[in-house]
Amino acid sequence: MSFLTNLINGLSLGSVYAIIALGYTMVYGIAKMLNFAHGDVIMIGGYVCFVSVMSLGLGAIPSILLAIILCTLLGILVERLAYKPLRQAPSLAVLITAIGVSYFLQNAALLIWGSAGKVFPSLLDGIPSLQLFDGQLTVSGKALVNIVVCLITMTVLTLFTGKTRVGKAMRAVSEDKGAAQLMGINVDATISLTFAIGSGLAAVAGVLLCSTYPMLMPTTGSMPGIKAFTAAVFGGIGSIPGALLGGLLLGVLEIFCNAYISQELSNAIVFGVLIIVLLVRPTGLLGKPIREKV
């Protein structure tokens, strides 16, 4: 049974990674940039939720909504101020800017909330756990929420990009900005929308992450951010199902390493596997090599 428990914990952690990875993958797909500040938006989401519950006294649901709204606005603002002026710049300049934004957000959090860790309120404790196999296997309410939220997000986003007019326009922009403009698609607005969606997802991930590991610090978002980025590359960056697959595999791998091999080595093993996968499949598990007809 411990194997199944570990598997479920892995899927739960992997679901959070997958939601973060989605943000990376969507922004990369549309804006062709790696938004390294994405992990720090998660942290801001966590803090907003924390403040809203502890200081403003709001309930769980309004707090989560507030975190989503503020992070969405933050994402749009960061894109407008930091990335939009660099639309024509080489990608290296944008990458360095993203790292700069990441440090800016971390230090802003340090300034506002201090360096001491805050204990995140238990928002999801009210959700009942699930007993399976006559009580031999317990799936915690948090794990259930993580997995369900992740599946819902994936489904909604897949339907959005596959079926709606705006979602299809988003895919068109991700393939060829010039041709998309010729169709009458407003590329700038589409990029803003992508950042909005990605940052809203980061807020969701922040709340889930902090509920699972209830310690909040200005650097809370960095490691999960890097891991989710890894998950996105692992699954094939730019691909939504790839983010799901990469996130889940990474989460399960990490928990299994922790449980059966060594806690100290788990990160090394996880990243080692990534390197091997990329050596064999440079585009990631579900990434498609782009072939162009001339």
Binding site: R171, A179, V294
Partner: peptide, 25 residues
């Protein structure tokens, strides 16, 4: 409307979706 050099159809979208993009406006 411009049909650009090198066609520049959306290679990863279906034929029908490409046509829908043409009618985006």
């Amino acid at each position: 409307a411009l049909v650009p050099e090198g066609r520049r159809v959306f290679l990863q979208m279906t034929v029908q979706e490409n046509l829908e993009m043409g009618a985006y406006i």
